[in-house]
Structures are given as C-alpha cells and as structure tokens.
Amino acid sequence: MSAETKHPPEIGAFFQRDRSWHPRGLTPDYKTSVLRSPEKALLSLDNTISEITGPVFGHGILGALDNDLIHNFAKPGESAIGERIIVYGRVLDERGNGVPGALLEFWQANAGGRYRHKKEGYIAALDPNFGGCGRTITDEDGAYAFRTIRPGAYPWPNGVNDWRPAHIHFSVFGHGFAQRLITQMYFEGDPMIWQCPIVRTIPDKAAVEMLVAALDMQATIPMDARAYKFDIVLRGRRSSVFENRLEGN
C-alpha cells in the first residue's frame, strides 16, 4: 500500500490562501496575463467536502525510470546531454508536516534551452535522448528525489529580448483538490532570475526565494551529479478538535 494510508487522513478545511503572496492574475509585464486574468472578485468559499477531498495516486502508477529524465527518453545505453543533477527535497504543509504520497510531475527544457514540443520555435538543438518530463511520489516523510540534466535558459516572445532563467516546472498534488499547485524551481546564483517578467509576477522577494533551489555539495555524488535541494510547501489544514465535522450525513 502507499504511504498515505499509514496515518488516518486529516480532514480539516485548508487555511485561507494568502493571495497577496501569490502572483496577482493581472500582471501586464507578463503580457499573456492581460486577456487571461479574471476581472471580477473571486467568491470566497470555506472548504466543503468537494475541496477537502482529492485524488491520491499510489506508487504503483510509477515506472522504473519516471524519476530519471537522463534515461527515460534515451535510447538503450545512451543518455541525455547536459550537466547531470539530482533534485531532492520535501513536500511540507504550512504547519511544517511532511506530506506523504504527494504526486510531483515535472517538465523542463533540455540543456540548450529547447523544449520537445510542436509549438517550440527556439533554434537551439533538440537532444534526441531527452524528453523533458518525469514524475515521482513522496515517501512517508514527504521526501522525494529525481535525476535530470540542468536545463538551459531560453528566449520567449514577451519583450523583444526576454529570457527565462533556467527552471524546472513542478505540478503538485497533495491530499485535497484545494491544495493543487503549479510552480517553478530556479537555480541558486542565476542572475537571470531577477530579470524575468514571470518571476516578477511574484510580488515579494522572500516568496521568490522560496522557489530558488540551493546547491548542496553534501548531497552531490562525486564524479557523477551535483545536487539541488528544493522544498515545496502546500496549504495546511485546520485541525482544531472543536472544528465542526461533516461526518454522519
């Protein structure tokens, strides 16, 4: 059985989301947001069962190479080109507890900054041995790890000369549909981070820093791969013993 069944599930409503910490919908320097951001106020809704529950995925869905982007698209005996790295960390909730059984899906450009996608127009070369996607599920402590190559920076059509810093996209499933989150991981020391219009949709510098993975030489494998630590925090649940319960209906 998967890790998430070892403890009785928490069933409280989630803490209110701090929307001033997240990017606003309308961020004109990121031009695509202008026509894709709601203009009216959101309807605030204390969580019902529909938001508290969510799908959970067992480790059984995972293939042997799902957490190895260096090999999961490569021909037998070959591997993706680029700087070999390990990305590891924990998924936590706002109360600081590890989130077991969280599904992480990730996607990224290759070492030259090129995505394997029909709509990708950048002239950098495709790597025949790199697909650019993978996934894993956190263990009972909320820990995860995967292997990949460090993605390249790439230009994108926004300003005439806007470039994305090197990044890995993350999609995260916790235990409730209201915890659903997509974010991006950046790399310590990259000067491109602070120039990026997408990074700058985040209003608070401390919030951006939550998305910058730290180089960890202690977790680095000598003569093989450097390591970056990237923790992800999902919304926490209210857990007062005095909370109204929904059971019995």
């Binding site: 947001s33 600081g96 997509i182 919030a207 925090v233 999902l234």
Partner: peptide, 10 residues
Amino acid sequence: RLKESPSQTA
C-alpha cells in the same frame, strides 16, 4: 507556520 510556495504559470 510556513508560507505556501508561490504559484507560477503552467
């Protein structure tokens, strides 16, 4: 308490 990781566009 920790802060939620900020969202970024998909």
